[in-house]
């Protein structure tokens, strides 16, 4: 028995969501009096790999062959399943990222494991059961799922579990696996980075705007505020439907669900579909000129006023705060 966590890298680096997953997986290992193995696939430097031991991994497996340099979910799933068997892991934890979502279900099928995707809590293992809370109805609710199989796969939502320092001193060791040629049918042609700005799913702060901005030409102040706060920009569905902003910024029930520490909604009324996508945000700020806007019912802080007056003032206030901090 052990727990295995997959440490997804982005350009050879681990994001905070990886350390959250490692901390989470270590807590599960502790619940079951067992050990945690982390596995990294791709090209990650030894120093970076050792960081996995800072958050509680007892063992760090490194798979770094040229063939496995780029993420191909089919091939990576085979490697993770083999590592899981080698480590006799009965729980596998994977971050619920874009790549993780294409990977975890394949691993689950390979291992005959029940899967809890979109997990937001540690398993409740009382009475010999294995219960996990997950998001459902696109953020409008949570469901508690019982996994009844011997093997279990958990896909953990980023920013839903804290990073816990717990140094083990583990050093990376190479893990060799035989790969199947049939796992490499999909061919990566190119990776296109949209911007060097903070990406929306990773962002701890999100500045989002809606139709209240009247047109795409007015997004300059939204981007300026986001840059000042180290935030990602987002928008409501009507805005992306109108082509003012790309679909990748659309937050809501049929777009991206986000769970940042701070979500600032500007000129968005708060339709039920939009609120679904942001309900897991820790703190919500609303700026809207309509005091009856539904968004105020779910917000922590609000300023009733015109976005074109408030946002420039907010930019100045943040600048003042940053100058004094």
């Amino acid at each position: 028995m052990s727990v295995l966590v997959y440490a997804e890298n982005a350009d050879g680096k681990f994001k905070k969501s990886v350390f959250e997953a490692v901390s989470y997986a270590r807590a599960i290992a502790d619940q079951n009096n067992t050990t945690l193995t982390a596995i990294s696939i791709g090209n990650v430097a030894a120093d970076e790999l050792s960081a996995l031991g800072q958050y509680g991994a007892h063992k760090i497996l490194n798979v770094s062959t040229d063939k496995l340099k780029n993420f191909i979910n089919q091939a990576y799933a085979s490697v993770i399943a083999k590592a899981s068997e080698a480590e006799q892991a009965d729980v596998v934890v994977i971050s619920n990222t874009f790549s993780g979502r294409g990977l975890a279900p394949r691993v689950a099928v390979k291992l005959g494991a029940g899967i809890a995707d979109g997990a937001v809590s540690l398993p409740d293992t009382g009475n010999g059961k294995f219960l996990i809370k997950k998001t459902a109805f696109s953020g409008k609710a949570f469901a508690t799922v019982e996994l009844t199989s011997a093997n279990k796969v958990i896909a953990l939502i980023p920013n839903s579990y804290k990073v816990i320092e717990n140094a083990t001193g583990a050093k990376p060791e190479d893990f060799t696996v035989e790969t199947n040629e049939s796992d490499f049918k999909a061919l990566l042609k190119e990776i296109v980075k949209s911007t060097d700005k903070v990406s929306l799913p990773d962002a701890e702060i999100v500045v989002s705007a809606g139709r209240g901005l009247k047109g795409p030409e007015n997004w300059g102040m939204i981007e300026e505020l986001a840059d000042l706060l180290g935030a990602a920009t987002a928008c409501s569905k009507p805005v992306s439907d109108a082509g003012w902003r790309p679909h990748s910024e659309h937050v809501g029930q049929t777009g991206i669900a986000v769970s940042p520490n701070l979500y600032i909604a500007i000129g968005i009324s708060g339709a039920i579909q939009h609120l679904a996508g942001i309900s897991s945000s820790k703190v919500i700020v609303v700026i809207n000129k309509d005091p009856e806007a539904p968004f105020y019912k779910v917000a922590d802080y609000g300023i009733v006023g015109d976005a074109f007056e408030i946002v420039p003032k907010l930019i100045e206030a943040v600048k003042t705060y940053k100058a004094s901090a």
């Binding site: 899967i115 809890a116 469901a143 508690t144 799922v145 009844t148 802080y301 609000g302």
Partner: peptide, 20 residues
């Protein structure tokens, strides 16, 4: 079957909005 939904809940309501 390897998973069962046991129960549901809706997100905890937030407190009253603080207007500035």
């Amino acid at each position: 079957a390897s998973s069962e939904i046991i129960s549901y809940e809706t997100p905890a309501p937030r407190g009253q909005v603080k207007l500035i």
